[in-house]
């Protein structure tokens, strides 16, 4: 049964394509064998107390172990569509690719467009097309990271599906979680979509080059975000002009180093 609509058909295929290689399509692997069972005459209660996301969380921990063993720093990037995740990555790859080995797992419902942009920027990339799925999960990351053949001591960026709701519940095994807000959105995004901000470690506020043309108040936005998560750290950037990007690189490389 697929996780996007519960169907047992093939409409909701998860597609993984390493940029530059032939694509491979497969349905999310859920087996449903309804075998023969012996009749029981009496009913009985089974106490479970099982976390609903147990399966995902176990797989996420496996990914985390894989990353740790290979000294890979992984970062789960989440935001609404259009906040500048891919542009931020392109700029980051351009500026850091000679310092550290970078990889990207691109999550989108459809198209190879983002993978193409990342490949052009110069990083190995795998595109995960979730079909109708609204988020990446630990199983997709487990497969994607193996296909990418990630080297030790590298950084893996996981660009989640642009969505401020669903990705927040699914642990991917990442080292850190990054949420991106942009100045063209409302300042109150953090309180409208609190879960994603609550579970993030860092918050990038992008498109600060547009501030003179907008009514966006960066302090109001930060204040809302701090109400949701008072541990959140902010970095203000413009991925287009490069303003503030040095601070982001410094924070990124520091986080990678601290993990060692």
């Amino acid at each position: 049964m697929c996780i996007t609509c519960g169907c047992e058909g093939n409409e909701n295929e998860i597609k993984m394509t390493v940029f530059g290689e032939k694509s491979e399509t497969k349905h999310n692997e859920h087996t449903h064998s309804h075998g023969h069972h012996h009749e029981h005459s009496h009913s009985h209660e089974i106490n479970l107390e099982t976390n609903i996301l147990n399966q995902n969380n176990l797989l996420a921990e496996r990914n985390r172990g894989y990353f740790e063993a290979k000294n890979i720093f992984s970062i789960n990037m989440m935001s609404s569509p259009g906040s500048g995740k891919t542009t931020l990555l392109e700029k980051t790859i351009n500026d850091l690719k000679n310092k550290v080995q970078l990889y990207v797992i691109e999550g989108d419902q459809q198209t190879m467009n983002d993978a193409e942009r990342i490949a052009n920027a110069g990083a190995p990339v795998i595109q995960v097309n979730t079909g109708n799925g609204c988020h990446l999960d630990a199983d997709m990351i487990n497969k994607a990271v193996k296909k990418l053949n990630v080297k030790n001591d590298s950084i893996v960026f996981i660009e989640n599906v642009g969505n401020l709701v669903c990705p927040s519940l699914f642990d991917l095994g990442e080292s850190k979680r990054l949420v991106i807000m942009s100045t063209t959105e409302g300042e109150d995004k953090p309180v409208k979509y609190p879960t994603i901000f609550e579970n993030a470690d860092i918050c990038i506020i992008n498109k600060i080059d547009l501030l003179p043309y907008l009514n966006y108040d960066i302090e109001i936005a930060k204040n809302y975000a701090l109400r949701v998560n008072h541990h959140l750290e902010f970095i203000e950037v413009s991925a287009t002009t490069g303003e503030g990007m040095e601070k982001w690189y410094e924070a990124l490389l520091k986080m990678q180093k601290t993990q060692e």
Partner: peptide, 29 residues
């Protein structure tokens, strides 16, 4: 809507435990 993946996870947990107990159906959850 992530609730669908939540529901699929719930069904998988419940069915796997019910099968372990050789049950044919689940009457309550």
């Amino acid at each position: 809507m992530h609730e669908m993946s939540i529901v699929v996870s719930i069904v998988e947990i419940a069915e796997s435990e019910a099968k372990k107990a050789n049950a044919e159906k689940i009457t309550e959850m």
